[in-house]
């Protein structure tokens, strides 16, 4: 199954019945999958919106009434959605937003890239907020993390972003769908479904009282602290005896893993740390690895974005090098292997 369709199937199995989207390559298969399975079905909604701006606001509406709702796009369209994401975050509404990244800035290229890391992990729109950001690196993980995204969104009343890329969306790999949500999900508390038997409620973000807004911001960040504590995840591969650890996410991590296996075969002690939650970033895990390894290489398909989180986590401990290919260029594992090997020898780790 292709990655885009796998997200669609996983979303439906997670109880998502509302999808709103606007065509953009390389994620159209997802929109089309949802059109096939959600249009003209009772209790389901599929709308091809007139723009991404409209689509994210439709998600906002569906979330207001308690639906598990999703939208998807690729980089230029995600920029348009930022306004809506800011409102979702402010109103504490769950939603799942998929970004199958492509090269940028501007219209860029339709090839896979990782240049929206900053946008995704720093909130992205205006105001002081965060979203949970998940970084899958295989078709199987696209499916698994989509299911997790809906759970996290509901649990913490927060928009969750799945940060994939063009290659993950387009490629086909075997995939297994693990669990299924109950056919009828309980109606989320605080859904605005009419004030029957209760006083009417308001969902709003605007207030003329700064201290009221400050309290809202504080409460958001209290929740963010909780999320950091409970939901941070990452994968490590052969880090125990490693003298050099590569840190990469998504498709880049997958390429790096191939490169590391090649280097290991030649006796170089190299490991991999792959953040799965990009926000919250696995700071503690990076620190833990730094206890035994002094040399890091951050590899990204951009000019260096996640590296800032790595540096913040390390706080001066260890040495961090960087290798990046921007613009939608997908480096081969052999290229990354060369980079790693050179660094390994340069730093006298052999």
């Amino acid at each position: 199954m292709d990655g885009n369709s796998a997200i669609g199937e996983a979303a439906i199995r997670a109880g998502c019945r509302c999808y709103f989207g606007y065509p953009i390559t390389p994620q159209n298969e997802l929109t089309e999958y949802m059109a096939m399975h959600l249009s003209r079905k009772k209790g389901c909604a599929f709308v091809q919106a007139e723009s991404e701006l409209a689509a994210i606001n439709m998600v906002y509406g569906a979330s207001l009434v308690g639906a598990r709702a999703m939208t998807s796009s690729s980089s230029p369209g995600i920029s348009l959605k930022q306004e809506g994401i800011s409102y979702l975050a402010a109103c504490e509404l769950p939603a799942v937003i998929v970004n199958m990244q492509r090269g940028g800035p501007g219209l860029g290229s339709i090839s896979a890239a990782q240049s929206d890391y900053f946008q995704a992990t720093r909130g992205g729109g205006h105001g002081d907020y965060r979203t949970i950001v998940l970084g899958p690196s295989s078709v199987q993980e696209l499916a698994d993390l989509t299911m997790r995204a809906f759970e996290l969104a509901d649990k913490y009343k927060i928009p969750v972003i799945i940060l994939g890329d063009g290659v993950l969306g387009q490629m086909m790999e075997p995939v297994e769908f693990k669990k299924e949500a109950p056919a009828e999900l309980p109606i989320r508390e605080n859904s605005l479904r009419g004030a029957t038997g209760r006083p009417s409620k308001i969902v709003k973000t605007f207030t003329s009282n700064p201290s009221e807004l400050e309290e809202i911001n504080w409460s958001l960040f209290r929740r963010y602290t909780l999320i950091k504590k409970q939901e941070t995840t990452c994968e490590t591969f052969m880090v125990d005896d490693a003298r050099l650890v590569v840190i990469a996410f998504g498709i880049a991590a997958r390429i790096a893993k191939g490169a590391i296996k090649t280097a290991r075969a030649e006796g170089l002690k190299i490991g991999l740390l792959r953040p799965i939650t990009l926000w919250p970033f696995p700071e503690e895990q990076v620190k833990e690895v730094a206890k035994t390894t002094g040399q890091f290489l951050v590899f990204e398909m951009n000019m260096g974005q996640m590296i800032e989180d790595v540096q913040l986590a390390l706080a001066g401990q260890g040495e961090v090098a960087f290798y990046g290919r921007p613009g939608g260029v997908i480096p081969a594992p052999s290229e990354v292997a060369r980079v790693i090997t050179r660094l390994y020898y340069q730093k006298g780790l052999k």
Binding site: M172, I255, P333
Partner: peptide, 29 residues
């Protein structure tokens, strides 16, 4: 196995291609 079709503007004008990777181990790219 991975299967990756070329997509988008590349395929306008009527050409198409795809890549299949087959391996005993995990496929990096």
């Amino acid at each position: 196995v991975t299967y990756l079709p070329a997509y988008g503007a590349e395929v306008r004008g009527g050409t198409a291609n795809c890549t299949v990777a087959i391996s005993d181990d995990e496929i990096a790219s």
